[in-house]
Structures are given as C-alpha cells and as structure tokens.
Computed example of a mutant assay.
Amino acid sequence: MATENSDARGNDSSLWARLGWFRRSSRRTRQEELTRALIHQLSCVTDEIRHANLLQHHRITADETDRAMADPALAAVMSTLPGLSDNKRRQILYVNRRYATVMLGYRIGSYGWDELIGHLRVLGRNSVFAEYWQATSEHRRSLPNQSLEARVGRAVDVIMEELAEDPDEWWVVGPPPEPDS
C-alpha cells in the first residue's frame, strides 16, 4: 500500500510538473506573440513617420520651386541646366516638380509600380518632359545603380525610346522592367 501512495504522489508530481511546464510554455508563446505584434506595430509607425517626412520634404521642395518659378533670379539658382530662357526654365522646373510628385505617390504607397509607369507614360508624351528628360540624362548617371531613382530612370528611358519610335501608340508600349526590390 505504501508503494501505491508513493506511485500516486509520483504521478501527481509529474502531472504538476507537466502543468507548470505547459503554463510556462503558454506564457512564453503569448509573450512571443505579443512581441511580434509590437514589432509589427512599430514597423507600421516607422513607415508612417517616413511617409510624413517624405511629404514634408516634398512640401518644402514644392514651395522652393514655386518661389523659383515666380522669380527668374531664384530659378537660375535652382536650375542646373545652362542656356534656358526664363520661360523654358520655369517649364523645366515645373515638369521636374510634376515628376517628383508622381514619384512621391509611389514612394508613399498611393499606387504600385504599374500605376507609376502609367503616370510616367502619360507624362512622357509631353514635349517639355521629353526635353527635360534628355537634358537631365547626365544627372541620372550619378545615381547609385540600385536606387529607386535609378531604377525608375531606366524604366522611363525605355518608355521614352518606345514613344520616340511610335508616339501614336503610346498606350501599347511594352511594360518597362519591374523594380529590382
């Protein structure tokens, strides 16, 4: 009989030990789930802050561009292209601002790659944009090869080549390369 009691107590102890392990395991699992959720939320907040910073930077740049377009002396400071008339310089500054706005929409997630390319196809039909794009080709050569600006630049180069070959079928041009993530 003494053996039965010690076996029963041993089984009770084993059961309590297993329950304790289960509780610790469940607690650890719950802590891991909470940590993952917290990291995800922190990542979302970080993205929102980055987007807010991009928007603020765009506002500052747009304000500077507005002032430059209104004052030829400031436009000469902002523009790096030589030999432009005041009107042409204002057009180039504005088309650069328009390009930056389209890029901003992609950067903050307002639309994806395909829609970005669609906006750029339409913009590429504009003769001032075509002139701007050609005049700034050297600027783009200085970009890091894998940067978003460089990847978009290569896609726009393809768009501009296709538009030059057949401007009447701008909507039929083949898809530019996907972004290299």
Rank of each mutant, 00 (worst) to 15 (best):
L93D: 01
D71M: 00
R89N: 12
S85G: 13
M1C: 13
T136W: 00
Q56K: 11
V172C: 12
A17E: 10
W16S: 08
G20T: 09
T3M: 00
I60E: 09
A135D: 12
A70N: 08
D66R: 15
R30G: 11
Q41K: 15
R18V: 04
R121F: 03
Q146T: 12
N5Y: 06
R9M: 11
C44E: 14
V122F: 02
Q56E: 07
W171N: 13
L38S: 11
E169N: 11
H58Y: 03
P144N: 04
W113E: 07
Y99T: 12
I60M: 10
L104T: 10
I108M: 10
P167E: 03
A164P: 05
A8N: 08
A2R: 14
R59L: 07
R151A: 01
L163P: 05
F129R: 03
L34G: 09
P72F: 07
M1F: 03
V77S: 13
W16V: 12
A8E: 10
V45H: 14
S43M: 07
T46W: 00
D180A: 14
I60C: 02
P177K: 13
G83T: 08
N87Y: 07
R24Q: 13
V156L: 04
M78C: 08
N145W: 04
K88L: 11
D180G: 10
R36S: 08
S79H: 01
A70F: 02
M160S: 03
R67T: 07
L42I: 04
R23L: 08
D12W: 03
S110Q: 09
V152E: 03
D47C: 07
D12Y: 05
G10T: 10
A68S: 15
P72V: 03
R125G: 04
V128M: 01
M69F: 00
A70Q: 12
H57G: 13
V156W: 02
A100H: 06
I159V: 11
A100E: 10
H51V: 04
L54Q: 07
G105C: 02
F22D: 11
R151S: 07
D166Y: 00
P176T: 07
R125M: 12
L81F: 00
N145G: 06
G105F: 01
N5S: 14
V77D: 12
A2F: 09
H51G: 01
R141D: 08
L15Q: 15
H51E: 04
N96G: 15
L55M: 12
D114W: 01
Q41M: 08
D168I: 01
Y132W: 15
M69Q: 06
R36Y: 00
P82L: 03
Q41V: 10
Y94M: 00
R90L: 00
T101K: 12
I159C: 01
V45D: 09
V156M: 07
S43W: 01
